[in-house]
Design a binder for these strands. Sequence first.
DNA 1: CTCCGGTTAC
DNA 2: GTAACCGGAG
Length: 344
Amino acid sequence: MAFEQEEILQITSKIERWFTKSAREFPWRNDDFPWGRLVCEFMAQQTQIDRVAQRWPIMLQRFPEPSSMAKSDEQGVLELWQGLGYYRRAKNLKKTAEIIASEFGGEVPSDIESLLQLPGVGKYTAGAIASIAFEKHAPIVDANVHRVLCRLCNHAGDPTPSTWTWQISELLVTSCNSPQLFNEGLMELGATVCTSKSPSCDDCPLQSCCGASKENTQRDIPPPKKRATKKRVYHYSVVAEHEGELAFEQRNDSGLWAGMWQVPTIDSDVKLTEAQVRKKLNLKNKLISIGEFEHVLSHRIISFSVFACKIERDRRFSWVKQDSLHELPLASAQRKVLAVHCVT
DNA sequence: CTCCGGTTAC
DNA sequence: GTAACCGGAG
């Protein structure tokens, strides 16, 4: 795909003008600063923007700059991340804050090389921070940008961001006037106009130069991604009570729901009986079945079975009063477990 | 049950 | 390269 320089300037200026008048209101757009942008980009990875908009102000109020997060403990960050999913992002954000505090004098670095050293920062996030917070002419390709650029050039075949897309993004951002307006505008256009299904081409500032619009191929570009088949697994959770307190344990540092808390739970590839669950948890009293539900993730369907029992206060677990549960970082599936037991 | 989305670990 | 990682909305 070869653009004339003239076309490049047409495209970039159209997007910058369009974004200036069409940008949606978001809290981080009121006063953009590098740390706020970094937190926003971590939260927005794989997460829809409206949920980020709810959580971002709370996170920034609690951790207004990298040093305050660096000094806090990871639990506090996980607590504010509850329900957002992909909890490794919260752990990476905490580590990133520590590195910014210790290696970069408490200031978010502005160059791509430094940004890429931060855990949880890949090519997209580095480019987003460098361009949007620091007006560097750095390319970004997220799913929105990929879709817009593939359609603009009528480029079929790549289901996800590819070398091709990064080259086009680089070509355009190099010549744009404001990398902040251009890159954010490109993403905003993909999110609101050049949408995956039924794009609003009549409202698009690029309609006159869009290859897909001309050939009417928008529907097939980009092609759909292959989705993992869902494996069914079984989780057995026991709400264990002793004098108004519930037993909790922390999940592994890696894997599913990394570092989040749960009532004592057995993860299994196969179905287990009540006796097997009791034995694996080394519990004495019979477990009373109180409910079941399914929890669907991108790559698995989890059948949850929930049990209740009374047990002695056991040092293997952390004991939490029922009115203190909100202080504990819990993933959504564990909230469903507690809802079965009628505590929330 | 399908769709949507960046980074990292393997 | 590819699988793992999440949750809410449709």
